[in-house]
Design a protein around this nucleic acid. Structure first.
Lengths: 148, 148
DNA sequence: TATTTACTCGATCAACTAGATAGGGTAAAT
DNA sequence: ATTTACCCTATCTAGTTGATCGAGTAAATA
């Protein structure tokens, strides 16, 4: 299950990726446009900033802006930030591996085999898709009206 | 995250799939062999029975046994039984679709696009792998010692 | 039929987490 | 100087997960 936190983070980042890089966007505006509880979004954006995904400007005309090129921000990083490892079980995680206390032989464990496959497939998608990639997909899905 | 419930269920089913079909296995034995809290396993097996995956025999010599051929029991069904839909967000679920209240256009929603891809990949694995398939993988991973 | 065996089922519980809100503090523009 | 808007800590509640207890009931065997 994707947490609300991660979902809101992705929505906010995608909204930022759509606009010109240098214009800060206020929390309040982002919250209104994306239907996110403002105070909750505040927390989330702060987290993204502390992880180097966002920058912020204080005072009048301030707000948040992307710290990196959207093509260098991958969905996997965002999801992991808020929801932890992609793997359904710790023993199948690449980034946060923890063995099962009870499992005598991982290589022969059915749960491990199946969940490793799920993890790999998930990673292939989320670690292989950048904000820019996803924006492109979104734009392809709603092509601009032809000028006739 | 795979719940303990689902994990225990899979382990128990795989253990049952390894043995001859007609011999019931006692909860206590299954619990001991698979390192599962007995009373908790009780609950889980009962659930599997009520969903037609298992049969049970009462009294002496009783226990649980598979109600169907292991080749006809898919991991997806088990995981969904205990953990709900595979999709990370309800709007990306095939079996339990619920639209997002706030989302004006799903086709253009980045979160939807990405999570649908994750769901499809997960389903391809879990709905495409039966207990029998997985047992085969496990056996391949621990080949019997050569007879010299 | 008596008795043992082992499943059935309801109630309960502690621990944890997610989602969310409140309220004041602080940096930086104008 | 003052306004704007980010920064941070504390708090709350509602729900879920993992787990256990104990009594009840069906069925096989002696």
């Amino acid at each position: 299950m994707l947490s609300k936190r991660a979902k809101y983070a992705l929505k906010a980042l995608l909204a930022l990726a759509e606009r010109p890089r240098e214009e800060p966007v206020r929390i309040a505006d982002l919250a209104r446009d994306q239907h996110i509880p403002p105070k909750f979004l505040e927390l989330i954006l702060l987290g993204l900033k502390n992880h180097g995904i966002l920058q912020s400007r204080k005072g009048k005309g301030g707000g948040y802006l992307l710290a990196r090129d959207p093509a260098d921000i991958y969905l996997g990083q965002i999801v992991r930030m808020f929801d932890g490892p992609l793997a359904p079980v710790p023993c199948a995680s690449q980034t946060a591996y923890v063995p099962c206390a009870d499992c005598p032989n991982e290589a022969v464990c059915g749960v491990h085999l199946a969940m490793k496959a799920v993890r790999d497939a998930t990673s292939r998608i989320l670690d292989g898709t950048s904000l820019a990639d996803l924006r492109r997909q979104m734009d392809d899905a709603s092509p601009p009206l032809p000028i006739d």
